[in-house]
Design a protein around this nucleic acid. Sequence first.
RNA 1: GGCCCGGUGGUCAAGCGGCUAAGACACCGCCCUUUCACGGCGGUAACACGGGUUCGAUUCCCGUCCGGGUCACCA
Length: 485
Amino acid sequence: MSKTVRTRFAPSPTGFMHVGNLRTALYEYLVAKSMGGQFILRIEDTDQERKVDGAVDIIYSTMKRAGLIHDEGPDIGGDYGPYVQSERKEMYLPYAKQLIEQGQAYYCFCTKERLDMLRENADDPGAGYDRHCRDLPQEEVQQKLRDGVPYVIRQKMPLTGTTTFEDAVYGTISVDNSELQDQILIKADGYPTYNFANVIDDHTMNITHVVRGSEYLSSTPKYNLLYEAFGWDIPTYIHLPLIMGKNDDGSVSKLAKRHGATSFEDLMKGGFLPAAIINYIALLGWAPKDNREMFTLPELVENFSIDGISKSPAIFDYDKLEWFNGEYIKAMTVEEFAAVCEPYFRQALGDLPLDHIKLASILQQRTTKLTDIPEKIAFFAEQPEYDVSLFVNKKSKTTLENVPSLLQAGIEALEALTEWNHDSIHDCLMNLAVTLGVKNGTAMWPVRIAASGMTVTPGGAVEILDILGREESLTRLKKGLAKFS
RNA sequence: GGCCCGGUGGUCAAGCGGCUAAGACACCGCCCUUUCACGGCGGUAACACGGGUUCGAUUCCCGUCCGGGUCACCA
């Protein structure tokens, strides 16, 4: 009988959720759920200097909006708590001391200043710590400890040999032990470093699959040496290809601010739907067995498999995200869409009593980003100044000469309407074209221009007139006609 | 710079020794159409390079080149 799969998302509270982190969280969730396992949330706040107030709430809200529901975590508890590292602080030191006793770690009394000097004077950028305290005489160590000299605890790396491990996506990876730094396990402030806390927590929380970005690939041997020192089982590693951004000069690098919105919050503010973001991100570094692209979260769980994860870095493509967003918008009911449009309607129209469902319906097929909405419908609230030249359109066969009479006829026909709704306006204008013996477009074009003051509008003349209402429509048409006198 | 990883169209990507090398986004053209979209149809465009292994390499091996990652009392 195999162990229950357990994965964990372990963000540090920095104040925003980078899409790279979100994607890691998503895959962690998918790995666990696709195998009937559990997904745990753990907050890694061992860096007391970088703590940000309210950052943990952002993590909760992001996870919730993305639908990544954890089975255990600080907010809901679980059998392996606490789930915040700062609350586990006391757990780590004993483990570090155990390592010292086993001869696999040591006290280091070097000051930060000395380390800085070391770094400055090194001509090799990868020189690192010189292991000055690695073999300090026992008495000296005890004396310094008694004197209260500040210390850190470092891991004693083997100087020779190689460490090899299996990664579920990258395969076998070996690193020479001589490459490994004697990394710090416990910092001077008593907190564990991320690397150390990670190993201790993952083990004590029974994490079976460690999913993280490939930037950890080359430091994984350090983790494994720790697992081995304690005699613990090494988890299954699943390293993910990095998400990159394209720079202006065409080069690529880890996705960062300069590439555009990089956090879940920014993306949402940018007019993207959570479901579209998740769907897009899922496909950045993973591909299903078939050609499918549209996936809800449950569908991802159903189709996910580790062997579909790719090895090469992927560039974040805002165009493709926009396409997904448009697809998700089109898949909504008008009512649902109108609901998500609400803040944007308010922004453009204030309290104007226009029919929001009708507005949503003309917008739905042509919206990819919600943030594009206000400028598209601004003319409903206030018509922009426009030039008569807008009335001229070759394809519609409208000219400065025929527009006045076209408009005049339109106004008369519309004024005669007893009912003002989509169908009546539609029939009226269509009949007008027949009566005048012109193409539909010829009759429609001047009306739409006069009603909107724009050449490009969401919806056609009929929809615009309907939404605008009789009075405002006629006012605008007459104003348009007046431009010719 | 050392080490680690990667390299199929502009982007995401199928492919896992034998294919006219899928598909999607973007781009271009045509159609539909009261504008713009949507939708439909079609098109341009790729196996980094050089050696091997093999009857046969995009697929396996080596080298080169290119790209990325990593070398913190940050996570």
